[in-house]
Design a protein around this nucleic acid. Structure first.
Lengths: 218, 218
DNA sequence: TGTACATCAGTGAACGCGCGTTCACTGATGTAC
DNA sequence: TGTACATCAGTGAACGCGCGTTCACTGATGTAC
């Protein structure tokens, strides 16, 4: 056991003390700068201030490190979504929209994690717990969808799984097209947040879940 | 001028005759096999059967080749979407759904193009005409959205641009999560096509555009 | 119809570079007694 | 409290490899006259 909070790369002698963490932080930095493809094992070692052989004490190879980053990303993602949902408070519909905002927020504020999770092509099997972590994140949205569905009369309830897949896909689509660092690929008439919120509202209205008519009354 | 249809790499002597095309085909092959990150200039040259210096006669560098692939991808994409829309025939709503199917179809059948277009991180400025080609593809969806919007009474028309962005994002989200070679990341209770069609229907209903109530009547 | 010449699209050898990986090693740490 | 020892997490040198890129070159093609 050791001081687990050796802030950013400062060596304490021969032993690094927290190389595993330092490598992960380095990976995040590098992915943030050059994308998941541009990240190399050697670079991460250099950034952590160790020799290029050192990382092998902690990760089988580059992919193992990436998979670990992705897993952690999903864990943080789950926490963020769960906090946004807040058990459906103050009110399911509003809480549902909060999930959407949290989704985009995460993509924007943690582009490196997001890239490792969704764009690095990491196989979900490459790390024990990665698939589980990804499933956990999705489960938040699924649970929220179920809560919303339960508000409808029993004979007009859409499948909650389908609903959560739709919202998940729409959120990811908006995030990856419009809320990433390489954004500006297309300039929008509104923010990504507004776009997602509007989309989810229209969708929910289509399910009979959100009030209002089509017009401007909001 | 020369026989432009020298099928797949067969040299005809000292001059290749169609190296530019052969390199693009090689790039598509390689991207299809190993993803856009795994594609290298040298590999493309090898696959086309020329020395590693030859590609420089046709492309400034690797990125220029990728950008060209992306541009061509968008051109094919535009054609596919436009054909699916078919000027709104036989009936706008059905034609609109055909666009969605064509979108996923393209992602599935041309994963290499799709990756170059949406996942390779190619800057839209890196090729003259790339941005235009991307805009043209989007314009098909936009035009279709406008046609649908025009079916609504003037005072309850949603902005067509917003509508097309929603459908574009949903389509891309579903394509990139569920309709790619690396799919199986999550197994679905329905096909990607059905998922997208259902999503678009719910969305359109939310706009007041598609008939039916929420229940199972379809 | 032939010849000279400009142009073009290739060659192949060479270079520097950085990556991934292995290896025997060694300094630091923790622990048994 | 001290000492011997096992374990662990690093080093640093070395390797093979493939990539990107440049260079002077040369074979093929097209064209002017």
């Amino acid at each position: 056991m050791r001081w687990s909070d050796d802030s950013s790369g400062g060596r304490r002698g021969y032993h690094h003390g927290n190389l595993r963490e330092a490598l992960i932080r380095a990976a995040l930095d590098l992915i943030g700068q050059k994308g998941p493809a541009g990240f190399t094992f050697a670079d991460a070692a250099r950034m952590a201030g160790v020799s290029s052989a050192a990382p092998y004490r902690h990760f089988r190879d580059r992919d193992a490190l990436l998979a670990d980053v992705a897993r952690r990303g999903f864990e943080l993602f789950t926490t963020a979504l769960d906090r946004a949902w807040n058990d459906g408070r103050p009110e399911p519909l509003r809480a549902f929209e909060n999930i959407g905002r949290a989704f985009l927020d995460f993509a924007r504020k943690e582009p490196a994690y997001y890239a490792a999770m969704f764009e690095a092509g990491v196989a979900l099997e490459s790390d024990p717990g990665l698939r589980q972590a990804a499933d956990d994140a999705f489960a938040v949205l699924r649970k929220a969808s179920e809560t919303l569905c339960a508000l409808l009369p029993r004979d007009s309830r859409p499948p909650a799984l389908m609903m959560s897949l739709h919202v998940w896909a729409l959120s990811h689509g908006i995030a990856s097209l419009f809320a990433r660092p390489d954004a500006g690929r297309r300039k929008l008439p509104m923010s990504a947040d507004e776009l997602l919120e509007a989309g989810v509202l229209v969708y929910l209205r289509g399910l009979g879940l959100a009030g209002g008519t089509t017009g401007g009354s909001r």
